[in-house]
Design a protein around this nucleic acid. Structure first.
Lengths: 170, 170
DNA sequence: ATTATCTTTCATTTTTTTTTGAAAGTTCAG
DNA sequence: CTGAACTTTCAAAAAAAAATGAAAGATAAT
């Protein structure tokens, strides 16, 4: 297999993975393209390589920048904007975790805590207690997951591959 | 807020979460409905409460069973099938992790390892080396995530809330 | 101030995903 | 064996999500 072919397959695989995890295909593909590119790319190059429209390229590039997964670069004397991707997989993971938490997990936890506050009258029912327990269980689990990912976000890669792994092996 | 209202809001919130993570809304909603129900439900009751068709209910119930998140129950002397949801959030989490890994992460890792084996001729290029490194980095990160989730799947809840948390606090 | 180059927006179109519902399939009591 | 009760399937329809592309908006050079 040639390098170019491998790169293309990687872009496809990353796109599929994104789709399965609720990230749109193009956003994941642009990300993959930037990951495998050793040079910064213009919007036109991205449009060309992925065969997508200007609007699509622009919107998804903006989303990637918003997630902290891509960066704008300006070249002296050139009008066109260039884009690069964060190559450090650790950082990529940390940013994805941070964004998804902020956008989805935090609001969910907030909802769970609201739902917990149901009318007192019904509190004696078993069904009521079970519901409260469910909300608490889910929120408790989310809190733990939060702590782990917090630690990941705060620490560096070596903590993850080192201390954490030592615990896991035991 | 009344209990029934809170349950309904939970079903909606869980459906939204599912959607964001690539799980279809109905599957997540049926799951939520089974989570908050203290009794087993028939297909007709699910259709009725979520206002969905028989086919939809049937397909998504099957998917949930496939994921190990719901179970069929037969009541003596009754023809209709009843369904229950796994109430233990720890088990729910473990099953979701296991299934997603099996369906998505494992195939991705296998692809990454294939892509690593590119033609020798090009091996001297910096670009080649960078590509190999990327594949290795992603696979390495995935391997670590695998180990943690493996340990989760193998251990019980107390390991997660206990030993792991002790490490995190430090 | 004008023009050329590049970026952004968003109403419309296209694609993808999900849902429907009727028909076929299954199971079992009588 | 027959038919009632229930489940499953899947082609077609509907809904949701994503992509297009042309027009409007910037920006900078002349």
């Amino acid at each position: 297999m040639k390098l170019e072919e491998a790169k293309q397959k990687f872009v496809e695989a990353w796109g599929t993975l994104g789709t399965n995890w609720g990230i749109n295909r193009t956003m994941a593909q642009i990300h993959a393209l930037l990951l495998v590119s050793d040079v910064a790319l213009t919007t036109d190059e991205i449009m060309d390589k992925l065969d997508i429209s200007r609007g699509n390229a622009n919107m998804n590039l903006r989303a990637l920048i918003d997630w902290g997964l891509a960066e704008r670069k300006v070249k002296l004397g050139e009008r066109a904007e260039y884009f690069t991707g964060e190559k450090d997989i650790w950082k990529v993971a940390v940013r994805i975790i941070r964004e998804r938490r902020r956008r989805e997990i935090d609001p969910l936890r907030s909802t769970l805590r609201d739902l917990r506050l149901i009318d007192d009258k019904e509190q004696k029912k078993e069904e009521y207690k079970a519901f409260i327990k469910l909300m608490d269980d889910i929120d408790g689990f989310a809190a733990s997951a939060d702590k782990i990912t917090d630690k990941m976000v705060m620490s560096d890669q070596s903590w993850f591959y080192g201390s954490l792994m030592k615990l896991i092996i035991k």
